[in-house]
Lab assay of single mutants.
Amino acid sequence: MDPFLVLLHSVSSSLSSSELTELKFLCLGRVGKRKLERVQSGLDLFSMLLEQNDLEPGHTELLRELLASLRRHDLLRRVDDFEAGA
């Protein structure tokens, strides 16, 4: 399986429902409101961002910004580990 997708799945499974709600709010300018209403998990949101090329294995800035906004430094370390091994 693609290591970047494994990372996104790992991050998604670590998010609380309130954190997902916050991420959806933060992505309002990037993803349409109707699409965001269908998001049920972090993976749903990340999939939309992947489709729009806002997220890519070599383009993790948005993911970092979102996780920093949540103050999830543990998840930021996972992104660091991914990039160190990528």
Rank of each mutant, 00 (worst) to 15 (best):
K35T: 06
S17R: 12
D74A: 00
L15N: 00
L67Y: 02
L20E: 03
G85C: 10
F46D: 03
D80I: 08
T21H: 13
L55H: 06
L7W: 03
T21D: 10
L36K: 01
L5V: 10
L55T: 06
V79P: 00
R71G: 15
R71T: 07
L49S: 02
L26W: 06
E65P: 03
F46Y: 04
E51P: 05
L43V: 13
S14V: 04
L7E: 03
R30L: 08
R71E: 14
Q40A: 14
S13K: 07
D80K: 08
L66A: 05
G42W: 02
S13I: 15
S69N: 15
R34I: 13
S12G: 08
R30D: 04
F82I: 02
L7A: 03
F4I: 03
L23C: 05
V39K: 01
E37T: 10
K33G: 11
V31E: 03
F25E: 14
S18D: 14
C27M: 11
T21K: 14
D74I: 00
F82T: 02
R64E: 03
D44Y: 02
E65I: 11
F25C: 14
D80F: 05
K35C: 06
S69M: 11
S18C: 08
R30M: 09
S41I: 06
M48W: 06
L43H: 10
K33F: 08
L75Q: 02
M1Y: 06
G58D: 14
T21S: 14
L45N: 01
E65T: 09
A86F: 08
S18L: 08
K33H: 13
R72D: 00
R77F: 05
L20G: 02
S17C: 11
S14T: 05
S18K: 14
L45S: 02
L20I: 08
K35N: 12
D2S: 07
M1T: 07
V79M: 06
E19W: 00
D2M: 04
M1K: 12
S13A: 15
D44R: 04
R71W: 06
R38M: 12
H59G: 11
H73K: 08
D2T: 07
R64V: 06
E37S: 11
N53H: 14
L75C: 01
D80S: 08
E22R: 12
M1S: 09
A84K: 14
D81H: 07
L7S: 01
V39S: 04
A84H: 13
G42L: 09
L8A: 01
H73G: 11
L50R: 13
L70Y: 01
G58L: 07
T60S: 06
F82N: 00
G85P: 12
Q40R: 14
E22I: 07
L20V: 14
L70S: 03
S14D: 13
D81S: 08
S69E: 11
E22Y: 11
R72H: 00
L28E: 15
F4H: 02
V39N: 03
V6F: 12
S69P: 10
L23E: 01
D54P: 05
S69T: 12
A68W: 15
Q52R: 09
S10Y: 11
G58S: 09
T60I: 08
M1V: 07
P3C: 08
L36Q: 04
R30I: 08
L70Q: 04
E37F: 07
F46A: 02
L5T: 14
Q40P: 01
L76M: 11
S41Q: 07
L23F: 01
S17N: 12
P3L: 07
R71C: 12
V6I: 12
L49E: 02
D44E: 12
S16K: 07
S16H: 05
L23R: 01
E83A: 09
D80R: 07
R77W: 05
R38V: 12
E51F: 07
L5Q: 14
D74M: 00
E51T: 08
S14F: 03
H9D: 13
F25Q: 15
N53G: 14
E37W: 06
L20K: 01
K33R: 12
H9M: 09
V39G: 02
E83H: 07
F25W: 13
L70H: 03
L7Q: 01
L36P: 02
R77N: 07
D2G: 05
R71Q: 13
L63V: 04
V31N: 03
R34P: 12
L43Y: 15
R78H: 10
H9E: 15
D74V: 00
L66Y: 07
E83Q: 08
R34D: 15
D74F: 00
D44W: 02
H59R: 15
E37C: 09
V31P: 00
S41D: 09
P57K: 11
E37Y: 06
